[in-house]
Structure formats: C-alpha cells, structure tokens
Design a protein around this nucleic acid. Structure first.
Lengths: 235, 235
DNA sequence: CAGTGGTCTAGACCACTCT
DNA sequence: GAGTGGTCTAGACCACTGG
C-alpha cells in the first residue's frame, strides 16, 4: 500500500509522471551524451524549448545537481556537465582521527566550557566535508592557544594532554546542509549530506569529545571496517 | 513589503539567510512546542500569517518533512507533527548479515547468471530500508527454490552451500530514492537516503555477493564498529 | 461539499560573472 | 552591459479526504 508508487494514474493528487520528471528523464539523456564540463543550455532556454515554466525545469535540474550529474556556477558561468569520477574515498577511522587533508581549521569557544574545532575536509582542491569536534574546555586548559591547527586532533590531545582514547561507536545518517555548512562545502542549502557522529571517551570511560562530520554524497564515500563476519550464533 | 531583509552578506547571489530559512526556523520552534501528531496549520494559513508566498512556506515545510519533523497526509488529513523517538538503530553487521526484521522478501532472476534477493527492512511496523543482494546463480544452484526467505541470507548460504565468508569493506554514501524504492519505503521520489554497499567474498577471495542497502535517514541510524583507535603511527 | 497538499505557470528582482 | 542561476510572488488547477 505504498502511497507514492504510481501504477498508471495518479496517487494523492500527484500525476503518475509529473512533468518535471519527464523533463529530468530527457535532460539525463542529454547529460549522458555530453562530455565532462560541457556547458549546459540555460534554464530559460530549456524552459522555452521544453514548453515548461522555468520553475519546472529547475526542479528537474535540481535533482540532477543533487545526483552529481550537473554543476551550477555563479553568474555567467552557468550550468555544466559534472566531471565524472570525482568520488573520493574517506576512511571512517581517518575521519575520527582527523587525518584527512584539511583547510580552514577554526577553533572557537562556545558557552562556558566548550571548545569547538571545525575544519573543512579537502580532496583534490574541492571541499568534500566538514568535521566538527566539541571538547570540554576545563579538561584541556589553554587548548585554543596551544593547538597548532595542523596536527590531527586526537594525536594532539594524546601528546599534549596525555589522553588515552577508548573505543568509539560512530553512527551514520543523512542530514540537510544548513546555510552555513552549504557555504563551506559550496553546495546549496538543504543539499543532502552523509552525516557521521561519534562520542569519544578516554580509556576510563570519561567523555572527552563530541563530534560530527558531514560529507558531500556526490563527492565522497565513507569506507568502513569490516563488521564481524563470523557466522552468527545459532539458537 | 521589503523582500530582502538582507541581514548581512550574500554568497553567489544567495542571501545569507534566505526567507524560506527564516520561516523554517520559526516553524521548527513551533514543531518543538507541539506534542506528537498535533495537526499543523495549513500551508495557506502559514503563508498568510508569515507574509510569505505559499511556495516559500512549502520550501520550508519540505525540509522539515525531509528531516522527519513533520508528516504530510493526503486530502483533508493535512500536515501533522511527526511522532518522535522513531529513530531506529541498525547495526552495520546486522545489515550485512541480513539479521534485521524483514518483510516482502523477493527472489528473482536477473539476466543469465544473477539471482537477486530483495527485502524491505521493517522496524515497528514501518519500512525503514531496502536490502538487495545479487548472487551468481551458477555458484548457488537451485537457490530460488531452496531459499526459505526467512533465514538470514548469509547464514543460509553458509549452511546450504558451505560458503565461508571472508572480510567485507562496506562503503556509505547518500542516494535519492528512485520511484521504485520510494514506493517500497513510502516516501516521495528523490527523498535522500543513506546508501550502504559492499562486496562479499568467500575466504579464498572469490566474489560471492554484491549487495546494497538504503535506509530512510529520518527513521534509521546506521551504527558501526569502532575504528582502530590506537594512536596513529608517527613519522 | 470545503479544504488539504502536490504541481505548475508567468512573471519579478537580486547578486554574480564574463565579455 | 548582458546573461546566468537563486529566490520569491500570486495566482491556478488537480486529486484526494473528511464531515
């Protein structure tokens, strides 16, 4: 009883094949035929040629952009066919350890007892993710002044404050880019992102780090450790 | 009415705080104050009260729906506050082992030598994900007839075909719901989903299984093994 | 029946970038 | 200056649901 599966006519007032989806299909064919970086027709021209309003065309283009097939530039740059093969692999442990190539590392104080370390993950001159860590300021006195912003965070904490990290159990979901994150990642607000979060404890179980990271789904893949693969216990 | 309450800078023609985002913030406050399943004001009323067009209001509502804070119903049902606490944890190894509660397990043959096992992951009467596995038919003769569709897939393969599975290295990204998957998950097409994929090999390294799973980001969290947390090697 | 959300239109102004 | 994408408006029609 899927409400959205249209099997011919319409469901819930939604036409079986919305016009924007017809446009998307045709535009996708066009994208597949064009080489990387080929300039794409302007939205107003497509609107004219397809006989649809610019709004409808934009909805189709929006999805192709979200799927990483088209790239939109500012001003006269216009839309273009996205370069293929720009997917970067990012390891989960590298993300947690903060070993990825970074830029724009910012340290700031939030409220009374929280220090935030935010960095933009870069791969091949493109921003692919944002990593944000929150630390208890009282646990790491003078952190903002002492941290050099280049050493991987966990290594620095280990070296400078003698933290021995315990286990971590990250979890993964999707999130929409806030305007702020969208600016850092050069995507539109509300772009769906891959979100990873974790809590860091020291070896005695005391909380040390509360962190999250978001990755551009069209530019990054998160690779993980293999789960335990012994055959599951049988009753 | 002054349209551009520009409260600061802009990037690429996008105001720092778009109007729809201001609406979203205010609407989110409202959502947080209301109990689960409370009917939400109609879009036209919000449009009137906020002094914004219905299109702008809808854009704000769209994001709240994608984030699982609001639920929209058909016809006179209208919009309502989504029940909270519906986030289910799904373990990565459970996903790979196919241990999650399933419904609609379908086995079909694709092409010459591929058998596909597709199942809908269910948690608390809601579909939260789809799992799809592709096997080489010649490696598992008679699979479609022998598989009982209730035993976890990997356990069945181990028991019935004496497969000893080797390591697995899953990767994670985002995807947009195809119309077909959207129907299975009861979401709109193009809804962003969490996507997990992996290749299964036996202990000798021969490929056995090519699988992927998608999860509703507003209903499921993927939990993972902790990465290696020994301090990274220093040069 | 009235009212809801889903889609679509034909405009408009803005900030930006290339020529 | 011209043309691009990003946002926004004020309408419209549709299919659907409840009283």
């Amino acid at each position: 009883m899927s409400r959205w599966l249209s099997d011919g006519n319409s469901v819930r007032g939604v036409p079986a094949t919305p016009r924007y989806y017809q446009a998307k299909t045709r535009l996708l064919d066009l994208v597949n035929e064009l080489p990387d970086n080929t300039p794409f027709p302007p939205e107003r021209e497509l609107s004219d040629v397809f006989g649809m309003s610019r709004t409808t065309i934009r909805k189709a283009l929006d999805e192709l952009v979200l799927e990483g097939r088209l790239v939109r530039g500012a001003g006269r740059q216009g839309t273009a066919v996205a370069p293929r093969g720009r997917i970067h692999r990012i390891g989960l442990d590298a993300l947690v350890q903060d070993l990825a190539a970074r830029e724009q590392v910012v340290v700031r104080t939030i409220g009374q007892d929280v220090v935030n370390v935010e960095s933009v993950l870069v791969r091949g001159d493109e921003p692919v993710g944002v990593r944000s860590a929150c630390l208890r300021a009282s646990r790491f006195p003078g952190f903002a002044e002492r941290y050099d912003r280049t050493t991987p965070l966990r290594r620095f904490l280990s070296d400078a404050y003698e933290v021995r990290f315990g286990e971590v159990c990250p979890w993964c979901t999707t999130a929409l880019a806030t305007p702020r994150v969208a600016g850092l990642l050069d995507v539109r607000p509300a772009t769906p992102l891959l979100s990873v979060a974790w809590l860091g404890h020291d070896h005695r179980g005391a909380p040390v780090e509360r962190s999250w990271a978001v990755l551009r789904g069209d530019r990054a893949r998160l690779t993980m450790q293999s789960p335990r693969l012994s055959a599951p216990a049988r009753p």
